[in-house]
Design a protein around this nucleic acid. Structure first.
Lengths: 183, 183
DNA sequence: CTAGATGCAAACGTTTTGCACCCCG
DNA sequence: CGGGGTGCAAAACGTTTGCATCTAG
């Protein structure tokens, strides 16, 4: 994310805040900058930790409140990975239609876009009496690297195990286009 | 769920437990019976409440531990709806391939199966270096009833609002086959 | 007899909230 | 001066865990 588009994003946040009679304070600006500086999914607590070490510290309460506002504005999206984990994904500004494929074992996340699945999703969604606005698909599978080699750089916890609370493994991502095009 | 298949399910649980050197105690049997008596998604706390009123009470710790085991056995699946909510779905025994469509506003859940999306999912999953075992698709959309009428029997909380913690709204479901077949 | 199972309460991590104070327009 | 914003600490919530006790094979 270059400085230019980051600036545009701050403006967008500014516009949203003022449209609701709210202000873009320096804490909120620091958060927006930090969140949209890269494409990584994050947990609120990670923001807290990052800001603690840097100069501009922001309280936990403000972090949660600001995240809520950004989600409401549509700039940020919550993604749930199972296990009750809540991550936030700043990447919908750049790829508004991307979906997530998640390894049930090692929690590796791959982002992908696919026109066919989009069409099918629209179709299903409408047929069932839903509107395809703000749609999101999450697919779970198991990551080949883990399955074949028995290990994987994202692996954490016992294979087939449950609790992974409190883990701090950073999620790596790669966006793949047209992932499911017919061969 | 008739008594016959319920009995078969208890046997299946029994088999799983003994294969791991564990026992099917009366608490575990009570839980299995309660969970698979109907198809409803549930929260652990709901089981606790139901068992408190009935004769056979089971402690919170045992409920969580048993749920973990049932998930491990593959008989029960966790589904996450966003907002950090974790529900459990006993319905994969009957419809192993079903997916969930969830209203982002009112949290209404519809289960559906669709062969086309299954194929596409397999394709995408493999292409991205994953194995399509234990796959799950979750689609978010917004429910027409809520959008058009401004209300919906499942609606809870402020429209566009955030926290829904502590809610006890029962999730209604309906499984629809071939939802996305081409017209 | 002994591994496994239970119930209780405490601990845990995350998120929300009440409140006093603060800042900016 | 006033409405929104912040930080702190406490509360709330769902879940997990340590431990003493119990139970079933």
């Amino acid at each position: 994310m270059d400085a230019k588009s980051l600036k545009a994003i701050v403006s967008q946040a500014q516009a949203f805040f003022s449209s609701k009679g709210l202000r873009l304070t320096k804490q909120r600006e620091a958060l927006v900058t930090l969140i949209f500086r890269n494409d990584d999914h994050f947990r609120p607590e990670e923001l807290l930790a990052k800001l603690r070490t840097s100069d501009g510290s922001v309280s936990r309460a403000t972090i949660y409140r600001t995240i809520s506002l950004l989600v409401e504005s549509g700039m940020l999206r919550e993604i749930s990975l199972g296990g009750g984990e809540r991550l936030y994904d700043p990447n919908f500004l750049k790829s508004p239609h991307h979906n997530h494929l998640i390894c049930v074992d090692c929690r590796k996340i791959v982002e992908f876009e696919d026109p066919n699945i989009d069409i099918m999703q629209n179709c299903i969604t409408r047929r069932l009496g839903f509107s395809p606005t703000q749609k999101a698909i999450r697919i779970e599978g198991s990551c080949d690297m883990l399955r074949l080699l028995g290990t994987c750089k994202n692996f954490r916890g016992v294979k087939g195990g449950k609790g992974m609370k409190g883990s701090n493994v950073r999620q790596r991502k790669a966006t793949v286009r047209n992932a499911g095009r017919s061969r």
